[in-house]
Each structure stands twice: as structure tokens, then as C-alpha cells.
């Protein structure tokens, strides 16, 4: 009986150890290799040492075996975490297939600490009605332009989620029962908090002083099908931006000029009708 049990544990342990070796060789990314190697090898050596304990069936040996298992189980995860953290911090490249890097920008460069405060304004509260978070419009920036867009959309019963990096604006919006997230919209974690993956349209209403292209790229990784409406004040790179997004780019000066020209033309037309010119 003892023999069968210890043989079985031995086989299981050796299998996991072999899988650890295969994993560390075949995985495409440092962090995936680490997952395979540390988890599987810890279990493997645990099982093998357990097999030793059962095989000998003496108290002294069993005690040592248990101590070994306990030690490995406690220290292997710590070691793995430390090397993973150091590697991430130093900038080891992630696998190309990585879609979202949640930790990016979260590390304080100086103190090497994860700088993620428990900020209630950075996450949407649990009480938000989920119906408002599907097919909605995400508005980035609630300044002079975003505010007008937001009010008009809400007047048309379209649910919006606002992303802004000004806390007071987010506080005021939340006080008025408008879903708002505080953060930098070029961070994928912030876009996820705004439920971009379920949104229908993304309106970028910040002026070009913010890195709009990066925002658009991040938005596309989170939700490739999203339609984007972008505000810009630069003539340069318009066509490139339009080709990048599915949606429309609005050049502020152009729209102003169009609206003002229309008004002037109407005035001319009405003056002509009234006979004075």
C-alpha cells in the first residue's frame, strides 16, 4: 500500500516537474515562463518529497520531509514574485500578443512601489446601473467642448460616462448622478473603468495638448470596433488620424469657420432680398 501510494506521488511529482521544464522552454514570454516553472516545480517537488515521507514511514524522515515541503511552498512564490517584479520594473518586454498591460504607469520610479491609491474616483461605484454602461458614449474631457456635448447627449437620453483628469469635475459630475471616472484616458485601466469595451462611441473632447494619438491607440486595443469622434486644433496629420480611427475628426477652426461662414452667407442672402447691398 505504501509502495503504491509513494510510487503514485513520485510519478505525479515527476510529471509536474517535467511540465515545468517544458513550460519554461516553450512559453513565449518571461512572465509566462515564470508561471510555468515556479508553480509546476513547487508542486512537483512537494509531491516527490511527500513520496519520500510515505516510502520511509519513519517519524524523523516524515518530519524533515514535511519541513521541506513547507519551506518550498512558502519560499518559492516569494522568490518568483521578487524576480517577476524586478523584471517587470526593469522593462523586460512582454509577449507581442499582450493586449493590456494593467500595471503600466502604476509603478513609482523612485520608491519602486506600486502606486495605486485606493481612489474612489478612479473606479466607478458598484451602484451604477449596468444598463447605463452598455452602448453608451464615453466622453474624454469635460471642459468647454466636452461639457456642451455631455449636456446635449444627456438631454437626448443618451447615457454617458465621462473621463477627466480633474478631480473636482469628477466630484461634481458624480454629485449630479453622472457616471464619471477620474484618471488619464491614455491608460487602458482608466478606459476599462469607463466600460469602453461596451461603449458605442468614444468622444475625445480634449484639446491637442493631451496626447490624443496615444489615447486613440489605447482605445483601439481595449475595443477595436469602437467609433471615435476626435477634437483637434492642428492641421497637421489630419488624414493620418482619420485613417487610423473609424469615426470622424473635427478640426475646431474648420467647424467654427463653417458655422460663421454659413451665418455670413445667410446675412448676405437676406440683405440681397431686402434690396440693400
Amino acid at each position: 500500500m505504501n509502495e503504491i501510494l509513494s510510487s503514485a506521488l513520485l510519478m505525479i511529482g515527476a510529471t509536474f516537474a517535467l511540465l515545468a521544464g517544458v513550460g519554461v522552454l516553450r512559453m513565449p514570454d518571461l512572465f509566462m515562463r515564470m508561471q510555468a516553472s515556479t508553480k509546476a516545480s513547487t508542486l512537483g517537488i512537494g509531491c516527490i518529497v511527500g513520496a519520500v515521507a510515505i516510502h520511509f514511514s519513519e517519524l524523523a524522515i516524515t518530519t524533515r520531509a514535511l519541513a521541506t515541503m513547507l519551506f518550498v511552498f512558502l519560499t518559492a512564490p516569494v522568490a518568483a514574485h521578487m524576480i517577476a517584479r524586478a523584471a517587470y520594473f526593469v522593462g523586460v518586454p512582454l509577449w507581442e500578443g499582450t493586449i493590456i498591460d494593467e500595471l503600466r504607469g502604476q509603478y513609482d520610479r523612485r520608491t519602486h512601489r506600486l502606486a495605486r491609491p485606493d481612489d474612489p474616483y478612479a473606479v466607478l461605484p458598484m451602484t451604477v446601473d449596468l444598463n447605463r454602461l452598455a452602448g453608451h458614449v464615453v466622453i474624454v474631457g469635460y471642459g468647454r467642448v466636452g461639457r456642451r456635448i455631455g449636456t446635449a447627449l444627456m438631454a437626448n437620453a443618451i447615457s454617458i460616462v465621462v473621463v477627466d483628469d480633474n478631480r473636482e469635475i469628477v466630484e461634481k459630475l458624480r454629485a449630479n448622478d453622472v457616471s464619471a471616472v477620474f484618471g488619464n484616458a491614455s491608460e487602458p485601466s482608466v478606459l476599462i473603468q469607463a466600460h469602453l469595451h461596451q461603449a458605442r462611441i468614444l468622444v475625445i473632447a480634449v484639446p491637442d495638448t493631451v496626447d490624443v494619438r496615444r489615447m486613440v491607440e489605447m482605445a483601439r486595443t481595449v475595443n477595436p470596433n469602437i467609433e471615435t469622434v476626435v477634437r483637434t486644433h492642428r492641421d497637421f496629420g489630419l488624414t493620418a488620424l482619420e485613417n487610423d480611427i473609424s469615426g470622424k475628426v473635427f478640426l475646431g477652426e474648420h467647424e467654427l469657420a463653417v458655422a460663421m461662414t454659413r451665418y455670413v452667407l445667410e446675412r448676405y442672402a437676406s440683405n440681397a432680398i431686402n434690396g440693400s447691398n
Binding site: G13, A14, A17, A20, G21, V24, L30, R33, M34, S37, T38, S41, T42, G44, I45, I48, V72, A76, A79, A80, I83, A84, A86, A87, V90, V92
Partner: peptide, 18 residues
């Protein structure tokens, strides 16, 4: 990269223990 080698070394020593 260096961390890759560190992980491999960690695995080697655990396997040696096994």
C-alpha cells in the same frame, strides 16, 4: 534576458533537489 536565466537557474536547483 537576465531574468530568464535566473528563472531557469531557480528551476534547475529545484529540480536538483527533486
Amino acid at each position: 534576458s537576465l531574468p530568464d536565466r535566473v528563472i531557469a537557474l531557480d528551476l534547475v536547483s529545484i529540480l536538483a533537489a527533486a
